[in-house]
Amino acid sequence: MKITDLFERGEFAVSAEVGPPKGIHIEEMIEDAKKYLGGVDAINVTDCQSSVMRVGSLAVCKELKDAGMNPIFQLACRDRNRIALESDLLSAAMFGIDNVLALTGDHTKMGDHPQAKPVFDLDSVSLLHTMCVLESGKDLGGNDLVGEPPKFAKGAVVSPCSDSVDAQLVKMEKKIEAGAEFFQTQAVFDSEKFIRFMERAKQFGKPVMLGIIIPKSAGMCKFMNNNVAGISVPDSILEELKADKEKTKAGITGVEIAARIIRECKPYCQGVHIMSLGWESKIPSLLEQSGLAR
């Protein structure tokens, strides 16, 4: 099912994210997804997230789909040239995987294979354009595709709390011109910042899914503040996490914080995208507390 169908019906969409393992056994991941992600509309599968080599996004998407779930294929430009990207898009469509999130990808130097050649033949914008070209029955070389062309729900990302929001908005507009139909955001911890961003982004008229990370500890938040672009966790949240260490460790504080951010931002966006970073088991209670349980 295309996630864009939900937006067209005016429904508030919920997606969550799973990160494939570095290995070939994904049974546990699929079981966890079945157990905890029943309440979400779609599941993003990351593509060697943070430039760390793992089992492939497309293969895991196929497994999720076979298990009755609705995957979003994350496709990054870091590791493939345009031939491989087009080929993987056709492969996805062949499997009936029709939600694709186009990413430029982190630089290879950020991951566990810093020696690898960074490809970036295309970027997120030209990858979205590529999907449109394939949908028209052609490839980037101008050649005809055989048979009925694929059709994708084309997603992209934006970083609403980036310290260069102006440039982010320019990029967002370029993504829309290139074909983006929906957006998922970098994790938001500052509702006011997100709302200010949405006041400027709403002119584009494209659905935006609020990015949410359940904060696990004050240490994790400090690490993200120092190391992750586009994430800034306010001091007030750090204090909340420090107040009762046991409650924080059990995930109760993190879920409360995440649910509050969702409730505050919900009137300004069209969906939520949860990056649980291993805390899939907390998602049902997060949906419950943020009023999104079905």
Binding site: H107, F120, K174, A229
Partner: peptide
């Protein structure tokens, strides 16, 4: 640009600096 991007910045800018 570290990634030689031709369609605008990636999301990796922090305090105006490159993530790489």
């Amino acid at each position: 640009c570290s990634k030689s991007l031709v369609n605008g910045p990636c999301g990796g800018t922090k305090d105006g600096k490159c993530e790489v």
